[in-house]
């Protein structure tokens, strides 16, 4: 009986995650097709939907949970997130700065 309940809960988690992911996927695709936003707002909207969807995948598909996931896994994930910000952000800053100084734009 408990096994069955556990099963239903697991499947439901996946289905909720899938539903949220579909919504968060449809939004950017619809925005892209309809147009009308300025480039900046478009970029921000897409980025926002993407980040939220990544969090949805982590929560519902990879079952990351601030209370139950072991601390060592969370630390690795958090550090990865930090480094992604440093590396991508740093690259954009450094290379953008170089390009601006070379091209004068």
């Amino acid at each position: 009986m408990t096994d069955l309940r556990q099963h239903q809960r697991d499947v439901r988690t996946y289905l909720i995650g899938f539903g949220l992911a579909v919504v968060l996927t449809v939004i950017p695709f619809v925005i892209t097709a309809t147009g009308g936003l300025s480039r900046t707002w478009f970029d921000l909207a897409i980025l926002f939907a993407a980040i939220v969807q990544v969090l949805v995948h982590l929560r519902y598909f990879l079952h990351i949970d601030l209370r139950h996931t072991p601390r060592e896994n969370l630390l690795a994930l958090g550090f990865t997130g930090l480094l992604m910000v440093i590396m991508i952000g740093g690259t954009l800053w450094i290379m953008g700065n170089l390009a601006a100084r070379m091209m004068g734009t």
Partner: peptide, 18 residues
């Protein structure tokens, strides 16, 4: 799957947006 979210959001959709 997660990497693909990044790819369509950062590569395809910005390219397709007019």
């Amino acid at each position: 799957g997660i990497v693909w979210i990044g790819i369509y959001s950062m590569v395809y959709l910005p390219g397709l947006y007019q």
